[in-house]
Design a protein around this nucleic acid. Structure first.
Lengths: 208, 208
DNA sequence: CTAAAAAATGAGTTAATATTCATATAGCAT
DNA sequence: ATGCTATATGAATATTAACTCATTTTTTAG
């Protein structure tokens, strides 16, 4: 069902993708309002009119970009939850994955976090809501892992959703700090786990 | 040195303050680019031209607002650090204060956090840097408390700046969650301290 | 009360940029 | 090679919103 695309269609998608990549690099650095369609046209080496063959409006382009990247990133972030390992390892893998995804997708992360912050960044309520929902669904999956762990007695008995928010926000904060001032305050997964669980987990074993 | 203001001057500041208050409520909901000077004029019941008697440009107005609020909030947040109590209680007070400041200044917090996020929100690099610096100076003060506590052996021996980022980001995350979906996941200072220290601190005593 | 000075007003000007569309170019079939 | 269709182009247009300033209104002083 994938191979039905004609060369024309493949070229169309390829060009569209190129435009979206350029747009990502621009929007993530300067924000929606400080990037013009001219900028996108110039940098992607298309004429302005051509951009409009791919996207009805500037906002459409932005919306498509934000949602596409959001979904892309979510799909990476939730992979560890499908592993059949114990909850502690799942959490560890989830944080490791998050760190890698951050590093590999800095631009997209900027776009994404800008959106979840609402307020000044938002262009249209709908984008904002969609991205919030994606992020929420991630937190819910993470919370489920905590819930399972609590039932087994390996995590403290607290609201699993708050634990999810907690560990995720620490991870985000450390990652942002690292992005802003690289090397100043090195951290790793163990440190995050240590704060959360007073535990270091190595090769299937728990060490305090 | 305060009472030298004439009625004129007092009226001028009063009006300026009114405009800034209106602008805050608008900017915090819709962001810089989605609020027009017309909007601010209409809502504050002045003419557009009058707004320009108070602020040279729209960006000036915004800058003044963001920095004023940032400084206002910082001065509230750092108060607990001046208390002469032990480090654990200082941290507790700092979180309590943060929760209260959040609740009392939701609009300003939105403005403030939007700015610290950089990226899409930014208007001019200078505002952004100024606010980042303010926030950074808060984190540094918080880190000092951790440092003192670590020396005394009452906190675990980790990078105090990371501990500061950590506890602050959890507090922020819980507060945002509460703002977005009130009542769904109740939390309090004890919960945050428990995650961080496995400790509840009541009336000067530590309880595990 | 009256006239000069100060302040406020908002229609009009200007600048920036999203969007359109007549024209040019490239691709393709015969 | 030739015409026909689809695609690309970017100058021209439309829109939006910041900012100005000639006019009106309010305040102050005598």
């Amino acid at each position: 069902m994938e191979k039905k695309l004609s060369r024309k269609e493949r070229e169309f998608s390829q060009r569209k993708k190129e435009i979206l990549d350029i747009a990502l690099s621009l929007f993530s650095k300067r924000g929606f309002h400080n990037v013009t369609m001219q900028d996108i046209a110039r940098k992607s080496e298309f004429a302005v009119g051509t951009i409009y063959k791919f996207f009805k409006t500037k906002e459409d382009l932005y919306r498509e970009l934000v949602i596409k990247k959001g979904e892309e990133i979510l799909s990476l972030l939730i992979k560890p939850f499908e592993l059949s390992v114990d909850e502690m390892l799942k959490i560890r893998k989830a944080i490791e994955t998050k760190i890698n995804v951050f590093i590999e997708n800095k631009d997209a992360i900027y776009l994404y976090l800008t959106e979840t912050r609402g307020a000044a960044a938002y262009v249209s309520i709908n984008i904002d809501e969609k991205i919030k929902d994606l992020y929420f669904s991630y937190l819910e999956k993470l919370a489920e892992v905590f819930e399972d762990g609590i039932k087994k007695g390996i995590f403290p008995d607290m609201d699993p959703f708050l634990l999810a928010i907690g560990i995720d926000s620490i991870s985000n904060a450390f990652l942002f700090q690292e992005m802003e001032r690289p090397g100043e305050h090195p951290f790793n997964v163990d440190l995050i786990l240590k704060i959360f669980f007073r535990q270091i987990y190595i090769g299937g074993k728990l060490n305090v």
